[in-house]
Design a protein around this nucleic acid. Sequence first.
DNA 1: CTTGGAATGTCAACAAAGCTGACGTATTGT
DNA 2: ACAATACGTCAGCTTTGTTGACATTCCAAG
Lengths: 168, 168
Amino acid sequence: MSDGLPPQMGQSLLFLTDEQLRKGIEAMFFAYRGFTADPDRILMQKSYGRAHHRAIHFIHRSPGTTVNNLLSILGVTKQSLNRVLRTLIEDGLVASTVGQRDKRERHLHLTDAGAALERELSDAQRDRMRAAYRAAGPNAVAGFRQVLEAMMDEETRHHYEAMKDRME
Amino acid sequence: MSDGLPPQMGQSLLFLTDEQLRKGIEAMFFAYRGFTADPDRILMQKSYGRAHHRAIHFIHRSPGTTVNNLLSILGVTKQSLNRVLRTLIEDGLVASTVGQRDKRERHLHLTDAGAALERELSDAQRDRMRAAYRAAGPNAVAGFRQVLEAMMDEETRHHYEAMKDRME
DNA sequence: CTTGGAATGTCAACAAAGCTGACGTATTGT
DNA sequence: ACAATACGTCAGCTTTGTTGACATTCCAAG
């Protein structure tokens, strides 16, 4: 794309005023609250938190993933993840099985109960996302994704893109 | 730009597959981490957290705002906000003045030191936002904002739009 | 005018979930 | 044999959310 110094600066630089950027920042803040609001309500009833949701989401996305892998995706410490994972295993939502190839590893799967909760949570979150997508239209959705991808850290983007093309 | 969308599907409704929605959900999660990463680094050095950043941001945006008003924007309890506000006042970054009309109210302003920190934080955050905007282009930015606005709660959107048209 | 209730803000105590550091155990690979 | 890896756990700290109790101030009904 452009390097930010095109000959006609009028259109391309004007939209990058501090006010425009501030609006973008606030839009991220407010939208993220809406984004998490629906799952949060469900989780509160079950005495879980966002950390549980994240663990469930990524175990669902990558069944059989190891603790270490989950750690690097979530970007938290193992102590922090372990607390969450322990309650999920105790409650029978997540199954931890010793690795075949490497017996030090634990492979994580959702149980039926875990998959049920995952569906309940992601249904709620997808409903809002779907409504927002429909309201904004396909063109806006493409732009939405482009800006979000550009906003990620390098390393983070790798985790994101790893599963990007899983659909056929 | 391989967004996983078959070309002829772009304008239809079929683009709302669960996979597409899941990618949008993960994009929000990963992008929000990038979005807060730079300010977080600055805040950590000064022993502040994200809550301090939010308070400083919205006091800067609406000088003279009351505690109650800030409360409804941030969506937290007053006790939680108060803790953050107290340290900011003690450290001389925020000034709290008793209201003229109603002496129960406290009007909040940034001091010079507070404005300096605000600028440092928002410069860092704007740099990333600006880079993402430039990489994605003006068209994508419009879509980005449209989707985010559609994702907000009704009540939240009111706070957002209250300051939307401050620019000309 | 008084007085009781609503509104605003503060203090105290507690919980969720992140962090660091240290340590133990099983397993792998050199 | 031994160092490194993967995982779990204990202890303790921080940030930031919560509820409950309380002081101050305003306003309106009696």
